[in-house]
Simulated assay, not measured.
Amino acid sequence: MTTEKTGTHGAILQDKAPEKDAAIVELRGAGKSYGNIRALHGVDLKVFPSQVTCVLGDNGAGKSTLIKIISGLHQHTEGEFLVDGAPVRFSTPREALDAGIATVYQDLAVVPLMPVWRNFFLGSEMTKGPWPIRRLDIEKMKKTADHELREMGIVLDDLEQPIGTLSGGQRQCVAIARAVYFGARVLILDEPTAALGVKQSGVVLKYIAAAREKGLGVIFITHNPHHAYMVGDHFSVLRLGTMELNASRSEVSLEELTNHMAGGTELAALKHELSQVRGVDVEELPEEEDLTAPVASTEGKS
């Protein structure tokens, strides 16, 4: 059922609100080539509302390329990209944003010396008064930012403080709340915990779970299987541009996810090489059959 709500500038926005069992975003055999370089190939991915889909992979696995395709920065060169079941080919990130797909990158795209409320509305400021002398509606932006942050469980004593004075985890949370406010249905988080300590990572993970509770489909890009397993509902592991693992939480353990992420075959080979080095004890390391044991894939299942 389609509902209507008033946007930031008084426009009527449509909330498509897909069915619970229908994927908002889906990739079918998607891939991307840059000339002769094949960065991504044969990737299948489904993002459902109220679900956290974790995409893991080492450097060069294809995570950044996957983000760029879904966020509209680059176009796929093979396979299909669907939003609400309809094939799409975004030419700009603005088109993806209009479809409800928001991306929070590691650098967060904030201005450190600007106040929190100003960063919350950066590029989409509220205004008041007749044209051509319209001016910023500062009071309304402050109240709205405070309300939306509190809705996400983020309580800041002073919205006038420069956002650069907040911790890394708090800045991530402000960016998440901003995306939720501006109508995101799918939230892509690019390594949000990569540069954070244990405590601040926990704060970010809490708000990822809060975004899921609000009905968003979350794509959590990370190289940390422990963080992924804490909040994830579905796990996809990329290796050298292809999907190595595609499994739901009930079908994969943390140990199996870690082995896939770390590269079980490579670790088995490394253990064999280390056993040839004097002074290195490999007796406590996992057996090769444990490192290379396959995990059942859920590819093709909804």
Rank of each mutant, 00 (worst) to 15 (best):
36 N>G: 10
300 G>M: 10
257 L>K: 06
120 F>G: 05
67 I>K: 01
84 D>Y: 15
46 K>R: 11
94 R>V: 14
80 E>A: 10
17 A>F: 12
95 E>T: 13
20 K>V: 10
229 Y>G: 07
43 V>T: 00
275 S>R: 14
203 V>A: 14
214 K>F: 03
169 G>F: 00
86 A>V: 11
245 L>E: 04
255 E>C: 03
166 L>I: 05
54 C>L: 02
74 H>E: 02
228 A>N: 04
48 F>G: 01
276 Q>E: 12
259 N>C: 12
168 G>Y: 01
138 I>V: 03
18 P>V: 05
14 Q>T: 10
224 N>P: 13
165 T>E: 06
62 G>Y: 01
175 A>P: 01
132 P>N: 15
145 A>W: 07
121 F>N: 03
294 P>M: 03
257 L>M: 06
175 A>D: 01
135 R>H: 00
98 D>H: 09
145 A>V: 15
47 V>S: 05
89 R>E: 09
2 T>R: 15
289 E>A: 04
4 E>N: 11
235 F>T: 03
115 P>G: 09
247 A>H: 07
144 T>F: 14
63 K>A: 02
226 H>R: 12
164 G>L: 14
153 G>I: 08
118 R>G: 13
233 D>S: 08
162 P>W: 03
272 H>K: 13
220 F>K: 09
281 D>C: 13
175 A>H: 00
79 G>Q: 01
294 P>F: 01
73 L>H: 03
90 F>Q: 04
143 K>G: 03
13 L>A: 06
249 R>T: 15
26 E>H: 09
151 E>Q: 11
254 L>R: 04
273 E>M: 15
110 V>K: 04
227 H>F: 12
250 S>T: 11
67 I>S: 00
17 A>K: 10
156 L>A: 12
227 H>M: 04
275 S>P: 09
88 V>Q: 07
226 H>A: 08
130 P>L: 14
21 D>T: 13
243 M>S: 13
158 D>P: 05
93 P>H: 02
73 L>G: 00
100 G>V: 03
142 K>P: 01
54 C>D: 01
81 F>M: 08
242 T>H: 06
60 G>W: 01
53 T>N: 11
75 Q>Y: 00
110 V>H: 10
242 T>Q: 10
104 V>D: 08
22 A>I: 07
197 G>N: 12
37 I>L: 06
97 L>V: 03
224 N>M: 15
272 H>Y: 07
180 V>L: 10
223 H>Y: 12
212 R>Q: 08
301 K>C: 04
240 L>T: 07
3 T>F: 10
11 A>C: 08
236 S>D: 15
158 D>R: 09
43 V>P: 00
265 T>H: 14
163 I>L: 00
